[in-house]
Protein backbone atom coordinates (compact mmCIF):
# COMPACT_ATOMS: atom_id res chain seq x y z
CA UNK A 1 0.00 0.00 0.00
CA UNK A 2 1.22 3.44 -0.75
CA UNK A 3 2.45 5.75 1.90
CA UNK A 4 -0.43 6.97 4.00
CA UNK A 5 -0.81 10.68 3.93
CA UNK A 6 -2.28 12.58 6.85
CA UNK A 7 -6.00 12.53 6.39
CA UNK A 8 -6.36 16.28 6.49
CA UNK A 9 -4.75 16.61 3.11
CA UNK A 10 -6.69 13.76 1.58
CA UNK A 11 -8.01 14.30 -1.90
CA UNK A 12 -5.74 17.26 -2.22
CA UNK A 13 -2.70 16.09 -4.09
CA UNK A 14 0.55 17.21 -2.59
CA UNK A 15 1.93 19.71 -5.07
CA UNK A 16 4.91 18.26 -6.85
CA UNK A 17 6.05 21.08 -9.05
CA UNK A 18 9.53 19.90 -9.78
CA UNK A 19 8.63 16.24 -10.00
CA UNK A 20 11.82 15.28 -11.84
CA UNK A 21 13.69 15.94 -8.63
CA UNK A 22 11.55 13.51 -6.61
CA UNK A 23 10.93 10.43 -8.70
CA UNK A 24 10.31 8.18 -5.69
CA UNK A 25 7.87 10.57 -4.12
CA UNK A 26 5.95 10.90 -7.35
CA UNK A 27 5.84 7.14 -7.68
CA UNK A 28 4.63 6.67 -4.14
CA UNK A 29 2.10 9.45 -4.12
CA UNK A 30 0.69 9.51 -7.60
CA UNK A 31 1.50 6.44 -9.60
CA UNK A 32 1.17 3.53 -7.20
CA UNK A 33 -2.12 4.60 -5.60
CA UNK A 34 -3.59 5.25 -9.01
CA UNK A 35 -2.52 1.89 -10.32
CA UNK A 36 -4.03 0.11 -7.36
CA UNK A 37 -7.22 2.12 -7.60
CA UNK A 38 -7.58 1.53 -11.29
CA UNK A 39 -7.16 -2.23 -10.93
CA UNK A 40 -9.74 -2.32 -8.16
CA UNK A 41 -12.11 -0.17 -10.14
CA UNK A 42 -11.72 -2.45 -13.14
CA UNK A 43 -13.13 -5.28 -11.03
CA UNK A 44 -15.89 -3.27 -9.40
CA UNK A 45 -17.07 -1.60 -12.58
CA UNK A 46 -17.53 -4.99 -14.21
CA UNK A 47 -21.17 -5.56 -13.24
CA UNK A 48 -22.19 -2.09 -14.35
CA UNK A 49 -20.10 -2.28 -17.48
CA UNK A 50 -21.68 -5.58 -18.39
CA UNK A 51 -25.12 -4.14 -17.81
CA UNK A 52 -24.36 -1.26 -20.15
CA UNK A 53 -22.84 -3.53 -22.75
CA UNK A 54 -25.74 -5.99 -22.73
CA UNK A 55 -28.29 -3.19 -22.58
CA UNK A 56 -26.98 -1.83 -25.87
CA UNK A 57 -26.74 -5.09 -27.76
CA UNK A 58 -29.31 -6.17 -30.30
CA UNK A 59 -30.93 -9.48 -29.36
CA UNK A 60 -29.04 -11.36 -32.06
CA UNK A 61 -25.69 -10.29 -30.69
CA UNK A 62 -26.48 -11.77 -27.28
CA UNK A 63 -25.98 -15.25 -28.68
CA UNK A 64 -22.52 -14.65 -30.08
CA UNK A 65 -19.77 -16.81 -28.69
CA UNK A 66 -17.36 -15.75 -27.38
CA UNK A 67 -19.43 -12.84 -26.12
CA UNK A 68 -18.55 -9.43 -27.48
CA UNK A 69 -17.07 -7.22 -24.83
CA UNK A 70 -18.49 -4.08 -26.38
CA UNK A 71 -21.55 -4.16 -28.65
CA UNK A 72 -20.62 -4.34 -32.32
CA UNK A 73 -23.78 -2.52 -33.07
CA UNK A 74 -25.37 -0.11 -30.61
CA UNK A 75 -29.08 -0.49 -30.22
CA UNK A 76 -30.38 2.48 -28.25
CA UNK A 77 -33.97 1.44 -28.91
CA UNK A 78 -33.54 -1.15 -26.18
CA UNK A 79 -34.16 1.65 -23.72
CA UNK A 80 -37.34 2.85 -25.33
CA UNK A 81 -38.48 -0.76 -25.76
CA UNK A 82 -37.72 -1.46 -22.11
CA UNK A 83 -39.80 1.39 -20.75
CA UNK A 84 -42.71 0.15 -22.80
CA UNK A 85 -42.69 -3.23 -21.09
CA UNK A 86 -44.00 -1.59 -17.95
CA UNK A 87 -45.30 1.92 -17.14
CA UNK A 88 -41.85 3.26 -16.35
CA UNK A 89 -42.79 6.86 -15.59
CA UNK A 90 -45.67 5.87 -13.37
CA UNK A 91 -43.43 3.49 -11.42
CA UNK A 92 -40.71 6.12 -11.24
CA UNK A 93 -43.20 8.47 -9.66
CA UNK A 94 -44.36 5.83 -7.16
CA UNK A 95 -40.82 4.87 -6.25
CA UNK A 96 -39.83 8.50 -5.79
CA UNK A 97 -42.69 9.18 -3.42
CA UNK A 98 -41.90 6.10 -1.35
CA UNK A 99 -38.20 6.91 -1.32
CA UNK A 100 -38.80 10.53 -0.34
CA UNK A 101 -41.01 9.56 2.59
CA UNK A 102 -38.59 6.82 3.63
CA UNK A 103 -35.62 9.17 3.71
CA UNK A 104 -37.63 11.76 5.58
CA UNK A 105 -38.66 9.19 8.17
CA UNK A 106 -35.14 7.87 8.51
CA UNK A 107 -33.40 11.19 9.02
CA UNK A 108 -35.98 12.40 11.51
CA UNK A 109 -36.41 9.33 13.66
CA UNK A 110 -33.00 7.70 13.79
CA UNK A 111 -30.91 10.59 15.17
CA UNK A 112 -33.48 11.19 17.91
CA UNK A 113 -33.52 7.55 18.90
CA UNK A 114 -29.75 7.21 18.62
CA UNK A 115 -29.37 10.25 20.83
CA UNK A 116 -31.49 8.59 23.47
CA UNK A 117 -29.26 5.56 23.29
CA UNK A 118 -25.94 7.36 23.43
CA UNK A 119 -25.97 10.82 24.91
CA UNK A 120 -28.41 10.43 27.75
CA UNK A 121 -27.44 8.15 30.57
CA UNK A 122 -30.56 6.40 31.83
CA UNK A 123 -30.82 3.20 33.76
CA UNK A 124 -31.39 0.16 31.58
CA UNK A 125 -30.39 2.02 28.46
CA UNK A 126 -27.85 -0.47 27.26
CA UNK A 127 -30.15 -3.37 27.99
CA UNK A 128 -32.81 -1.80 25.81
CA UNK A 129 -30.22 -1.06 23.19
CA UNK A 130 -29.34 -4.69 23.12
CA UNK A 131 -32.97 -5.38 22.27
CA UNK A 132 -32.67 -2.91 19.38
CA UNK A 133 -29.70 -4.83 18.08
CA UNK A 134 -31.44 -8.12 18.60
CA UNK A 135 -34.22 -7.06 16.24
CA UNK A 136 -31.67 -6.96 13.44
CA UNK A 137 -31.60 -10.72 13.57
CA UNK A 138 -35.26 -11.35 12.97
CA UNK A 139 -35.57 -12.92 9.54
CA UNK A 140 -37.97 -10.88 7.47
CA UNK A 141 -39.80 -13.75 5.78
CA UNK A 142 -41.19 -14.73 9.14
CA UNK A 143 -42.70 -11.33 9.81
CA UNK A 144 -44.47 -11.28 6.48
CA UNK A 145 -47.69 -12.98 7.54
CA UNK A 146 -48.16 -11.10 10.79
CA UNK A 147 -47.18 -7.75 9.30
CA UNK A 148 -49.57 -8.24 6.44
CA UNK A 149 -52.34 -9.03 8.89
CA UNK A 150 -51.63 -5.79 10.74
CA UNK A 151 -51.49 -3.64 7.63
CA UNK A 152 -54.62 -5.25 6.25
CA UNK A 153 -56.41 -4.52 9.50
CA UNK A 154 -55.29 -0.91 9.29
CA UNK A 155 -56.63 -0.78 5.74
CA UNK A 156 -53.19 0.05 4.41
CA UNK A 157 -52.97 -2.57 1.69
CA UNK A 158 -52.54 -0.97 -1.70
CA UNK A 159 -51.22 2.23 -0.17
CA UNK A 160 -47.66 3.41 0.34
CA UNK A 161 -48.10 3.45 4.12
CA UNK A 162 -46.79 -0.05 4.91
CA UNK A 163 -43.64 0.85 3.00
CA UNK A 164 -43.05 4.24 4.59
CA UNK A 165 -44.67 4.58 8.00
CA UNK A 166 -42.46 1.97 9.74
CA UNK A 167 -39.42 4.02 8.70
CA UNK A 168 -40.58 6.82 10.99
CA UNK A 169 -39.99 4.51 13.94
CA UNK A 170 -36.31 3.94 13.47
CA UNK A 171 -34.23 1.22 11.90
CA UNK A 172 -31.88 -0.76 14.13
CA UNK A 173 -28.95 -0.52 11.72
CA UNK A 174 -29.15 3.19 11.38
CA UNK A 175 -29.73 3.73 15.08
CA UNK A 176 -26.65 1.62 15.70
CA UNK A 177 -24.61 3.50 13.11
CA UNK A 178 -25.55 6.92 14.45
CA UNK A 179 -25.05 5.77 18.00
CA UNK A 180 -21.52 4.63 17.17
CA UNK A 181 -20.86 8.13 15.79
CA UNK A 182 -22.58 9.94 18.64
CA UNK A 183 -20.64 7.98 21.23
CA UNK A 184 -17.39 9.22 19.86
CA UNK A 185 -18.34 12.85 20.28
CA UNK A 186 -16.80 14.21 23.42
CA UNK A 187 -19.17 14.30 26.39
CA UNK A 188 -17.75 17.57 27.68
CA UNK A 189 -19.40 19.62 24.93
CA UNK A 190 -22.87 18.50 25.85
CA UNK A 191 -22.15 18.72 29.56
CA UNK A 192 -21.13 22.31 29.09
CA UNK A 193 -24.27 22.99 27.08
CA UNK A 194 -26.39 21.35 29.78
CA UNK A 195 -24.88 23.57 32.42
CA UNK A 196 -25.82 26.51 30.21
CA UNK A 197 -29.37 25.23 30.39
CA UNK A 198 -29.70 23.88 26.87
CA UNK A 199 -32.42 21.29 26.38
CA UNK A 200 -31.50 17.84 25.14
CA UNK A 201 -33.24 18.46 21.83
CA UNK A 202 -31.22 21.62 21.34
CA UNK A 203 -28.03 19.77 22.15
CA UNK A 204 -28.95 17.14 19.61
CA UNK A 205 -29.78 19.56 16.82
CA UNK A 206 -27.20 22.27 17.50
CA UNK A 207 -24.21 20.37 18.80
CA UNK A 208 -24.40 16.72 17.95
CA UNK A 209 -26.07 16.72 14.54
CA UNK A 210 -23.67 19.18 12.91
CA UNK A 211 -20.80 16.92 13.90
CA UNK A 212 -22.59 13.84 12.66
CA UNK A 213 -23.80 15.19 9.34
CA UNK A 214 -21.73 12.71 7.32
CA UNK A 215 -23.24 9.85 9.28
CA UNK A 216 -26.67 11.33 8.70
CA UNK A 217 -25.91 11.59 5.00
CA UNK A 218 -24.95 7.92 5.03
CA UNK A 219 -28.24 7.06 6.73
CA UNK A 220 -30.14 9.12 4.17
CA UNK A 221 -28.37 7.37 1.33
CA UNK A 222 -28.92 3.92 2.80
CA UNK A 223 -32.56 4.71 3.42
CA UNK A 224 -32.95 5.90 -0.15
CA UNK A 225 -31.30 2.75 -1.47
CA UNK A 226 -33.42 0.58 0.76
CA UNK A 227 -36.61 2.14 -0.52
CA UNK A 228 -35.48 2.33 -4.12
CA UNK A 229 -34.40 -1.28 -4.36
CA UNK A 230 -36.92 -2.90 -2.03
CA UNK A 231 -38.63 -5.72 -3.81
CA UNK A 232 -40.54 -7.92 -1.41
CA UNK A 233 -42.31 -5.06 0.40
CA UNK A 234 -43.94 -3.43 -2.64
CA UNK A 235 -44.67 -6.86 -4.05
CA UNK A 236 -46.72 -7.81 -1.02
CA UNK A 237 -48.37 -4.57 -0.06
CA UNK A 238 -49.10 -3.05 -3.45
CA UNK A 239 -51.59 -5.07 -5.39
CA UNK A 240 -52.80 -2.59 -7.93
CA UNK A 241 -50.47 -2.65 -10.93
CA UNK A 242 -50.55 1.16 -11.10
CA UNK A 243 -49.02 1.35 -7.61
CA UNK A 244 -45.97 -0.82 -8.29
CA UNK A 245 -42.41 0.37 -7.97
CA UNK A 246 -39.50 0.13 -10.38
CA UNK A 247 -37.94 -2.85 -8.60
CA UNK A 248 -41.16 -4.79 -9.06
CA UNK A 249 -41.39 -3.61 -12.65
CA UNK A 250 -38.06 -5.28 -13.40
CA UNK A 251 -39.58 -8.68 -12.76
CA UNK A 252 -41.80 -8.26 -15.80
CA UNK A 253 -38.84 -9.04 -18.02
CA UNK A 254 -39.00 -12.59 -16.82
CA UNK A 255 -41.51 -14.84 -18.41
CA UNK A 256 -43.50 -17.27 -16.33
CA UNK A 257 -41.22 -20.06 -17.53
CA UNK A 258 -38.44 -18.04 -15.88
CA UNK A 259 -35.74 -19.32 -18.22
CA UNK A 260 -36.61 -17.02 -21.03
CA UNK A 261 -35.63 -13.47 -20.29
CA UNK A 262 -35.14 -10.54 -22.62
CA UNK A 263 -31.75 -9.92 -21.18
CA UNK A 264 -30.90 -6.76 -23.09
CA UNK A 265 -34.19 -5.14 -22.17
CA UNK A 266 -33.87 -6.23 -18.53
CA UNK A 267 -30.42 -4.65 -18.36
CA UNK A 268 -31.60 -1.51 -20.12
CA UNK A 269 -34.46 -1.15 -17.65
CA UNK A 270 -32.16 -1.90 -14.71
CA UNK A 271 -29.85 0.87 -15.85
CA UNK A 272 -32.72 3.31 -16.03
CA UNK A 273 -33.75 2.22 -12.54
CA UNK A 274 -30.30 2.74 -11.03
CA UNK A 275 -29.49 5.91 -12.95
CA UNK A 276 -31.21 8.24 -10.44
CA UNK A 277 -29.51 6.50 -7.52
CA UNK A 278 -26.11 6.80 -9.15
CA UNK A 279 -26.73 10.46 -9.83
CA UNK A 280 -27.83 11.00 -6.27
CA UNK A 281 -24.71 9.28 -5.02
CA UNK A 282 -22.43 11.35 -7.23
CA UNK A 283 -24.03 14.55 -6.02
CA UNK A 284 -23.95 13.70 -2.36
CA UNK A 285 -20.75 11.75 -2.10
CA UNK A 286 -18.88 14.95 -1.34
CA UNK A 287 -21.29 15.72 1.43
CA UNK A 288 -20.46 12.65 3.41
CA UNK A 289 -16.99 11.79 2.26
CA UNK A 290 -15.18 15.08 1.81
CA UNK A 291 -14.19 16.78 5.00
CA UNK A 292 -15.79 14.20 7.15
CA UNK A 293 -15.24 14.71 10.81
CA UNK A 294 -15.68 11.63 12.84
CA UNK A 295 -16.52 12.59 16.36
CA UNK A 296 -15.54 15.77 18.10
CA UNK A 297 -11.80 15.34 17.81
CA UNK A 298 -10.73 17.76 15.15
Amino acid sequence: MAKAIPAASAAREAPVTNWWLHPVRVLNQSVVPRLILIVMCAVFILPLFWMVSVALKPTAELSLYPPTFWPQQLRWENFSDAINVFPFWQYLRNTSIITGLTVLGAVISNPIIAYGFSRIDWPGRDKVFFVVLATVFIPYPVLIIALFDIFARLGWINTFWPLTVPLFFGNPFWIFLLRQFFMQISQEVSDAARIDGASELRILFQIIMPQALPALAVVALFAALHAWNDFLGPLLYLQDATMYTLAVGLTFFQSASQYDIQFNLLMAASLLVVAPVITLFLIFQRAFVEGISFGGSK
Binding site: P33, L37, C41, P47, Q285
Partner: peptide, 27 residues
Protein backbone atom coordinates in the same frame (compact mmCIF):
# COMPACT_ATOMS: atom_id res chain seq x y z
CA UNK B 1 -5.67 7.95 -1.20
CA UNK B 2 -4.73 11.56 -1.86
CA UNK B 3 -5.10 11.55 -5.60
CA UNK B 4 -7.00 14.34 -7.26
CA UNK B 5 -9.66 12.27 -9.05
CA UNK B 6 -10.29 10.02 -6.04
CA UNK B 7 -14.00 10.82 -6.02
CA UNK B 8 -14.34 9.05 -9.36
CA UNK B 9 -12.71 5.92 -7.96
CA UNK B 10 -14.88 6.09 -4.89
CA UNK B 11 -18.00 6.28 -6.97
CA UNK B 12 -16.91 3.31 -9.07
CA UNK B 13 -16.02 1.18 -6.07
CA UNK B 14 -19.32 2.01 -4.47
CA UNK B 15 -21.46 1.49 -7.56
CA UNK B 16 -22.13 -2.26 -7.27
CA UNK B 17 -23.68 -1.71 -3.83
CA UNK B 18 -26.25 0.58 -5.41
CA UNK B 19 -27.44 -1.91 -7.99
CA UNK B 20 -30.63 -3.67 -6.99
CA UNK B 21 -29.76 -7.17 -5.83
CA UNK B 22 -32.27 -8.44 -8.34
CA UNK B 23 -30.39 -6.91 -11.29
CA UNK B 24 -26.94 -7.57 -9.83
CA UNK B 25 -27.77 -11.25 -9.44
CA UNK B 26 -28.69 -11.51 -13.10
CA UNK B 27 -25.50 -9.74 -14.18
Amino acid sequence: QPVREVSIYRAILYLPSILPLFALSFV
